[in-house]
Design a protein around this nucleic acid. Sequence first.
DNA 1: TATGAATGAGTCTTCATTCAT
DNA 2: TATGAATGAAGACTCATTCAT
Lengths: 205, 205, 205, 205
Amino acid sequence: MEQENARRERLIACAKREFLEKGFAKASLRNISKEAGLTTGAVYFFCKDKNGLFGAVVEEPLQRIAAAISQHFAEDLEEDLTQFRHTEGDHDAFAELMIDLLYADRDAMMILLQKATGSAYEDIVDRFIGMVEQHGLALANHFAAAVPGKRVNPYMLHWLSHVQVNAFVHLLTHEPDPEAARKAIKPVMDVLIESWMGHILEDDS
Amino acid sequence: MEQENARRERLIACAKREFLEKGFAKASLRNISKEAGLTTGAVYFFCKDKNGLFGAVVEEPLQRIAAAISQHFAEDLEEDLTQFRHTEGDHDAFAELMIDLLYADRDAMMILLQKATGSAYEDIVDRFIGMVEQHGLALANHFAAAVPGKRVNPYMLHWLSHVQVNAFVHLLTHEPDPEAARKAIKPVMDVLIESWMGHILEDDS
Amino acid sequence: MEQENARRERLIACAKREFLEKGFAKASLRNISKEAGLTTGAVYFFCKDKNGLFGAVVEEPLQRIAAAISQHFAEDLEEDLTQFRHTEGDHDAFAELMIDLLYADRDAMMILLQKATGSAYEDIVDRFIGMVEQHGLALANHFAAAVPGKRVNPYMLHWLSHVQVNAFVHLLTHEPDPEAARKAIKPVMDVLIESWMGHILEDDS
Amino acid sequence: MEQENARRERLIACAKREFLEKGFAKASLRNISKEAGLTTGAVYFFCKDKNGLFGAVVEEPLQRIAAAISQHFAEDLEEDLTQFRHTEGDHDAFAELMIDLLYADRDAMMILLQKATGSAYEDIVDRFIGMVEQHGLALANHFAAAVPGKRVNPYMLHWLSHVQVNAFVHLLTHEPDPEAARKAIKPVMDVLIESWMGHILEDDS
DNA sequence: TATGAATGAGTCTTCATTCAT
DNA sequence: TATGAATGAAGACTCATTCAT
């Protein structure tokens, strides 16, 4: 007799492998269940459907990281708007937290961020970018108010938000070792901050 | 009787629409041929197969842009290694050239860069990044040789190449108007150059 | 701890809803048990199988109505064959009895008469028609014996039996209110009797 | 080499057999194509989908009969409203026309009228009833206007329309021989007309 | 008494591709 | 030069049913 849930976990583990290898759209439920030693129907006992199976792989790590981001943005905004000064350390600490969360289940994260095309999560990166952009806009407006003759450059806000989010995706994808990732992220953060401080505003036409 | 090639061109035009809308993987040859008023078999007469049809849509613009990049890199390297001085104008001129080429057939370019998953071109962006990285490495080595106590940071080289290429993809995708694109690219280039100059090297061990 | 039978009754109530909505064939045991807060297996504990569950919903009202019909036919035949005279009131009283029985559990009746396709009861309407036809034949033979130059028209017997039974099915389906049904059935009965009396016999060829 | 269209026709013939035997919902495309010596995919070359295949079986006979009904109703209304007199012969002629059309492709008709549950045609009988009811209402209103103290009984209109349509369905189903059907329909029509004339009106409140 | 995990055969449908004509 | 008929394998998904516990 098997351990409780052993089969379910085997199924999800196999799903993870298949999604990682082929992406959501090309992954085959037939394959996944066969690998797990189950029938196709079993998938539908454990999950609602293909999307549900995908969710079973990525939902939990996603929740953790989304919560961390929300919280950080809330705190960051409060601090920043009152003191208008964030220390470098803040960003580094946040970056390390992100890396911890991303690498806690690296496969799931890579699936979520890179292999979700066709699934209900296919726009997850854009949603993150949206969050970053919204937060960045608040910051940038505050910033602009203090610098006469300047205003927010909306395209740069857009693009830099995009670059920020993808900086983490790129790191996750290209650096398997979390230690190395923690090292590599530092100069990346420097670039991100410098670029933002230096170019988020443009001359008032 | 129809013009020679008239059918072929209609087929390719319809393929472009379908690929743009659904991406390579989800595009249906049935749909495409029906739209073009032809039969499925016709695709296999005019092109080799689905990938061949995709190629017929993107190959020519791709060649033009690849050639431009190669040439630019060749010239840039020569200049740079001899004079160690590139004027700002150089980069802006190149960026404008890129934009002209990208927007000359924007749909095809978007297909190539964003809708190629599943096709023989699915790693085209990575191939561009590879070219940029290789060129960047030559430059960076030269640079490092002139700055004692510093060496090339390989991860930054990687990532910055990635960011450079994707800066153009992002612009192409988010800015439909080529005039606006030409304006928007300037501060982007500034960020790219500053970041590269400021962070491509790291402290020697 | 639940009341004995409480679960069983909840299960049957949910089955009734599902059968009414989707019919036997398209009803899903999964749905039904989920609605009832039970597992699929429970169905097989309480009932034999899908057909058994269907039976649990319809069997009792069916028995009541079948018994009433049998009894009525037995009495009717006896009276008729001896007296050759039934008063109009007889038919009306029977029709009202039918309506009472049909509307006593209207949902179950509608399921039985209209949603049984695929189940063991799918020919229930035909079985009723058979009973009516058999009874009608006895009556008609008796009638024919008294009218020289005439004989029973078998097709009319067939069809009128069909119409009689379906008159009740139609009423049940189209008139939710039992009071209104009791009113509406009167002219229907008149048509039925007139048609039968006027056309059940044909000229002896 | 096969005759042109031979395969298509074989497919449709097999579909007809399967639909007649099992009804739309339970018919299996696998079975049908296997019987026809084709693959499942072939169905989708010839037709859009399962409903399309069903349509290929029933659409043409349906069109013919629907057209005949429309035309008859148009003519009948015109005559009737001006002369208020339809001769018996009219109805018999129409009934015979109906029988000719119904028996011209009896299997297709039976499928359409009795085996369409689950298909796009599942309410075809109700649509016919609706047409008859609408036409009957015009007639009955005209009738009521000429008879003081009477008004149309809407439930009887409803039910008699239902009976009229199903009289043909019943005949089609129970009488395989068209000659016999032509004979059997006469007293049925008499019943229908008598019942309508005698009971379509009720006492004014 | 009732569960819940699992089956396995089935459903319709889609698709790129082929090839005789 | 181009067609159009047909393939065959795969796709996701549903379902009534079973059985050890």
